[in-house]
């Protein structure tokens, strides 16, 4: 199984080195922090929501390559989308990463994000990929800080 190497090759080469939408938004309307205490992944997400639309989005933080690439692709994907569409993507991404959504069979809106389908075979890394999405969900729900552990465990929620 060379899935993880393929995953790395496809995602890292681009997004880990040149993350999109990296930084802060001075005029953010929503802000949230995501933390995975098990590995120390820590990202900060800023959103500017106008009406129902995510007008701009930015992230920064310290994390592994899977988390950073996931965050980078997420921001590129949800920019300009409605909050409802973004939330739908959060659910689909979580389903893909935890194996409850089969991207080959089940209808979805993930597009290029399906490069992350391989993480379901790396159970110890699922949370790395989900953390940015979990943080996005928290930001639009106006939660300030989320953790991948305890009551907010995204993997447990979707199980």
């Amino acid at each position: 199984m060379t899935d993880s190497k393929q995953l790395y090759q496809e995602v890292i080469l681009d997004h880990n080195r040149k993350p999109r939408n990296y930084g802060k938004l001075p005029d953010a309307t929503h802000r949230s922090e995501g933390l995975n205490p098990l590995c120390g992944d820590h990202i900060r997400l800023d959103l500017k929501v106008a009406g129902d639309v995510i007008e701009s989005v930015a992230f920064e933080g310290q994390s592994c390559a899977i988390c950073k690439a996931s965050a980078s692709m997420m921001t590129a994907n949800v920019k300009g989308k409605s909050v409802a569409d973004a939330e739908r993507l959060v659910g689909e991404f979580r389903g893909m990463a935890t194996g409850t959504l089969d991207v080959a069979k089940d209808a979805n809106h993930l597009g290029r994000l399906t490069v992350f389908a391989g993480v379901k075979d790396l159970p110890s890394r699922v949370k790395c990929a989900i953390l940015p999405w979990h943080t996005l969900h928290a930001a639009v729900q106006s939660q300030a800080v989320v953790s991948t552990e305890g009551d907010n465990d995204p993997v447990a929620q979707s199980a």
């Binding site: 993880s4 190497k5 790395y8 590995c39 994390s63 592994c64 390559a65 899977i66 110890s124 790395c128």
Partner: peptide
């Protein structure tokens, strides 16, 4: 990140 190193 060490997690990436470990996975690879």
């Amino acid at each position: 990140h060490p997690h990436d190193v470990g996975t690879l």
